[in-house]
Design a binder for these strands. Structure first.
Length: 569
RNA sequence: GCCCUCGUAGUUCAAUGGAUAGAACACCAACCUUCUAAGUUGGAUAUAUAGGUUCGAUUCCUAUCGAGGGCACCA
């Protein structure tokens, strides 16, 4: 890539002008201000002290030392000591040509070639609603998966679902109690019913000691499968939940390679911990629980097997690492969770380092921020949740209203509404850097203007419409006649590969989001100031080439975010 | 109390230790007989506080204040 080339040239020039004295790493960056060129380096400022020379003088000498190069239009030294590089007309033309020639692979590179990566995300719990927290996790995980694939990685998507545990017992107790005392005709055929049962059961668990005991008893029966009635209810609930989730994954554009269930993992996780207990990695704590003393690592103690003899989240996670590896010999295992898990995960990773050191090294925990409602914390226990279904339908309604008057068929309208709704929702999650909480105000967060998913989609649709017109007018993209002035749009197009690479290194979808938004802005600007398809314009074929390149990169970029690219809207 | 994040414009978010701290929303004004106005153009406002390191700090360090998460059996 260009940065590396510049770095080499600068290094050689420094050597030529000042000799070999152990030059530090040369950072070639994108200047914030575009008048400072396409790339710049501050190396002169860094070595000024050692050379005991004025940085600007050094910069001038280095710039002069590089001299003429076909890659650049000019190289300038600027106060207080920056060296600015301005790329040549040909560079931009050739890049646009490259995009059209290899639309599928432009922007890809092989940083992670043949690396086997397993990404675990979404992780909803059967018997509980799929809410916007899961949505946030899914959007992040899916985008990270795609970003890694774009870098040549071999990605397997995994979904780990909590089909056992106290929450299930609460839901089942709730369902049974409602059926018994309140409404015997209550028909438990949807996830919604079980979710309601869960909320009801949770509240009872907290307020009534006797019920708490009953629920703990149910939990035990779920594990040992000793009660036929409970087994039946359990199977029903699990089935309707998974069916419901599958519909949601389809809407979100996720297809999982592996499904892991806590019910299957728990036994193995427990065995791993018991094994560790013999080796002295774990120890016995209060009330017979098996614990890991995190204090030796500057962390805190956590329970891996509770006093009931059941594996906790921590033990399961530990076992899961091994089970995943048995299925797919990964080089990297990424686990995407909300940031509330950070501290637990450190302890889990600490224990893993002692149990499975090789796997621990390959494991990377990525956390995203929680979606917080302005009214306060979201909790499925109290029923104060925004479900995905609700959000999706609300947004879809708004989009449908906007395209009501358009001349599309009903089927097209529905398809567009779904694509735009998903785009708007995902953008609102992926627009900010991963990790910190998002204050989620549905009306304000879901936007159709400015920085928004639909803004990106709309820009693409516009470009496609222009290209359609070019086709009708029979003007093909060409690279023969082009204006002298390099447009900001061309400059922005050329940045895509380095942005994609950076997003891959940092696992940061928002870098893509920000880039695409800037790119779309440049295109819309270009569109407003240029007539692209124009028979009597000698530059029209090149303008069409730029438009085509834009559409390709926007499509690829949207794919990286997991946002659908509509053809019209 | 201890540990981990984090504090940027009225609001939601950007900015590998660099050049004039960027956007968007909201507000005001202009632009559809050019290819989709979900668009474009112009306009005001911000680094919590106090020190320190550095040629240079929103970024690194220390303290204070404030927010969120965690600190033994739910995940």
């Amino acid at each position: 890539m260009v940065q590396q080339q510049i770095e080499k040239l600068v290094r050689a020039a420094i050597k030529k002008e000042f000799g070999d004295f152990g030059v530090p790493e040369i950072v070639v960056e994108r200047p914030v201000e575009k008048t400072y060129g396409d790339y710049s380096t501050n190396i002169a400022l860094q070595i000024a002290k050692e050379l005991k020379k004025n940085p600007l003088e050094i910069a001038k000498k280095v710039a002069g030392g590089i001299g003429q190069h076909s890659l650049f239009e000019k190289i300038e030294a600027a106060s207080p000591g920056f060296i600015n590089f301005y790329l040549s007309r040909d560079f931009f033309k050739d890049t646009v040509k490259e995009v059209l020639k290899h639309p599928k692979i432009f922007g890809r590179n092989n940083i992670l070639k043949d690396k086997k990566v397993i990404v675990e995300y979404t992780d909803p719990n059967p018997f509980k609603v799929f809410h916007i927290g899961h949505l946030s996790n899914n959007s992040t995980g899916e985008s990270i998966s795609r970003i890694i694939e774009f870098q040549g990685g071999n990605v397997k998507r995994a979904n780990y679902q909590g089909d056992v545990g106290l929450h299930v017992a609460k839901a089942i107790w709730g369902v049974m109690d409602i059926r018994k005392h309140r409404n015997s005709s209550f028909d438990f055929d949807s996830l919604k019913d079980f979710s309601a049962g869960y909320a009801y059961g949770s509240q009872a668990y907290e307020s009534d000691g006797d019920i708490k005991k009953e629920i703990i008893e149910i939990n035990r029966k779920i594990y040992d499968k000793s009660d036929k009635g409970i087994n039946k209810l359990y199977e029903e609930g699990r089935k309707v939940s998974l069916k419901e989730f599958e519909k949601i994954y389809k809407k979100l554009g996720t297809k999982f390679d592996y499904y892991f269930f806590e019910s299957k993992i728990a036994t193995f996780g427990k065995r791993v911990v018991e094994d560790g207990l013999k080796k002295g990695i774990f120890e016995k704590g209060e009330r017979g629980a098996t614990i890991f003393k995190g204090e030796k690592l500057g962390l805190h103690t956590r329970v891996f097997i509770n006093s009931e003899g059941l594996a906790t989240y921590e033990a399961k996670e530990l076992g899961l690492a091994k089970i995943k590896y048995d299925k797919f010999k990964y080089d990297v295992s990424i686990i995407v969770t909300g940031n509330e898990i950070i501290e637990y995960f450190k302890v889990v990773l600490g224990a893993m380092t002692e149990m499975f050191p090789e796997l621990a090294k390959k494991t990377k925990h990525i956390w995203h921020g929680m979606l917080r409602l302005p009214e306060g914390k979201m909790s499925s226990r109290t029923g104060n949740v925004v479900t995905f279904e609700f959000l999706f339908e609300e947004v879809k309604k708004i989009v449908s209203g906007k395209i009501e008057a358009r001349k599309f068929t009903e089927r097209e309208k529905n398809e567009i509404a779904e694509k735009v709704a998903i785009g708007a929702i995902k953008y609102s999650i992926l627009k900010q850097s991963i990790g910190s909480d998002i204050i989620y105000n549905i009306e304000k967060s879901i936007s159709f203007e400015g920085d928004s998913g639909p803004y990106l989609q709309y820009s693409l649709v516009r470009a496609l419409s222009v290209l359609e017109k070019a086709k009708v007018e029979k003007i093909k993209p060409l690279f023969k006649d082009l204006p002298d002035k390099i447009t900001d749009l061309e400059k922005m197009l050329c940045r895509f590969p380095e942005i994609a690479a950076k997003a891959g290194q940092e696992y940061e979808p928002h870098l893509i989001t920000t880039y695409l938004t800037e790119l779309a802005r440049e295109f819309n600007n270009y569109y407003a100031n240029n007539k692209i398809v124009e028979k009597n314009d000698e530059f029209s074929p090149y303008k069409i080439a730029i438009t085509k390149a834009f559409s390709i990169i926007m499509k690829n970029g949207l794919w990286l975010l997991g946002i659908p690219a509509p053809e019209k809207m």
